[in-house]
């Protein structure tokens, strides 16, 4: 554990809490992509199957359980409790365009051709692109609520902080996981445009809107 990974995990946790708070407080999931949230639930489910087979630490187990539970909690709020507020007309990204290629790639490029390892690889690849329906939704509507933009900033920061963690671990622990690093870099790059808008607009007190 190093400071980058810890702050990355905290940013990730903060993002999830922000999203749940937004939905709960406004009693609405307007502007949130149900498809991105479904894919995040799939990401956590396929990655954390090792909860059953492998104990790493109390911290690790607790965080994994929080991530899995909160992702299904978010789905519950979006698709059951506040279903009427779900903006499905703008959530039109085709999930199969991500899930199918990612599934294929996880069979082809992995550390070990075993069921758990393939599922772990699938989750890493899927996570890297799972935000695309959300970003697509914002580009369609041309704006995002400020709380949603804070959520996205925290979520994007998490993987950026993980990159620093991987640099640290490479130099100080000799640890290097090519699959995680490449996918993590792709994931972070996808946020760059959003980061720019967030810093130039939201940090100056304006709402996040896209240039016409």
């Amino acid at each position: 554990m190093n400071v980058f990974r810890l702050t990355g995990d905290i940013a990730h946790l903060l993002a999830i809490i922000l999203l749940l708070m937004k939905i709960w407080k406004t009693r609405s999931c307007a502007g949130v992509s149900g498809k991105s949230q479904m894919m995040f639930a799939l990401v956590f489910t396929t990655r954390y199957l090792d909860l059953i087979t492998n104990f790493i630490s109390l911290y690790n187990t607790t965080m994994k359980m929080i991530f899995i539970a909160s992702s299904y909690g978010t789905l519950y709020l979006m698709f059951l409790k506040f279903r009427a507020t779900y903006d499905s007309n703008h959530d039109t990204f085709r999930m199969e365009f991500l899930v199918v290629p990612v599934a294929g790639l996880s069979f082809l490029v992995n550390h070990d051709f075993s069921p758990l390892e393939i599922l772990w690889t699938f989750s890493i690849y899927l996570e890297s692109v799972a935000i695309l329906p959300q970003l697509f939704m914002i580009s369609k509507t041309g704006e995002a609520e400020t709380i949603t933009s804070h959520y996205l900033f925290a979520l994007g920061s998490y993987r950026a902080l993980y990159i620093l963690n991987w640099v640290y671990r490479f130099y100080f622990e000799g640890f290097f996981d090519l699959i995680a690093v490449v996918a993590g870099c792709v994931q972070t790059v996808l946020y760059c445009d959003f980061f720019y808008l967030y810093i130039t607009k939201v940090w100056k007190g304006k709402k996040l809107t896209l240039p016409a």
Binding site: R5, N54, I56, M63, H111, F175, D177
Partner: peptide, 10 residues
């Protein structure tokens, strides 16, 4: 790195 590392990250 060996295959199927112990995935200790989240």
């Amino acid at each position: 790195a060996e295959a199927a590392e112990n995935h200790d990250e989240l």
